[in-house]
C-alpha cells in the first residue's frame, strides 16, 4: 500500500540546514526500513505554470493552480502496511521537516 505524504507550509523560504539534516536522517531510515518509494522538495509556488488543454487549445497560466497561503512544499511517497504505519511515519516526517504533513492513500 502506498501513501502520498504532502508537506504543507505557509511561509516563504526553504528548509533550514538543521531541517535538511533532520530530513536526511529520516530519509535514510525510510530506505533502511523499506518504506522509501520517492521524495522531493519543490521550488516555490510562484515558479509554477498551469497548462489546460481540455479544450483542444492549450491555455498557459503563470503561477500555481490555486492561490492560497498554504502550499505544497514537497512530498514523500512511502510504502506502508496500513494507515497506522503511515501515520507514525508522517508524524516523524513532520517533526523532521518542521512542517505539516497530509497523508493520502493511493488508489
Amino acid at each position: 500500500m502506498q501513501y502520498l505524504l504532502s508537506v504543507i507550509h505557509d511561509q516563504a523560504g526553504l528548509a533550514t540546514p538543521e531541517e535538511d539534516a533532520a530530513i536526511d536522517v529520516f530519509n535514510d531510515r525510510l530506505q533502511a526500513e523499506g518504506h522509501w518509494v520517492f521524495a522531493g522538495g519543490l521550488a516555490s509556488p510562484s515558479t509554477a505554470t498551469v497548462i489546460d488543454n481540455r479544450g483542444g487549445e492549450a491555455m498557459v497560466t503563470d503561477g500555481p493552480f490555486l492561490e492560497s497561503k498554504e502550499y505544497l512544499a514537497g512530498f514523500w511517497i512511502i510504502e506502508a502496511a496500513d494507515l497506522d504505519v503511515a501515520l507514525r511515519l508522517a508524524t516523524e516526517g513532520s517533526e523532521a521537516c518542521n512542517r505539516k504533513v497530509e497523508v493520502r492513500p493511493f488508489l
Binding site: A81, D82, L83, D84, V103, L107
Partner: peptide, 10 residues
C-alpha cells in the same frame, strides 16, 4: 477501506 485503517488492537 481506501486509506486502509487497520482492523487491529493497537
Amino acid at each position: 477501506k481506501a486509506a486502509r485503517i487497520p482492523y487491529r488492537v493497537p
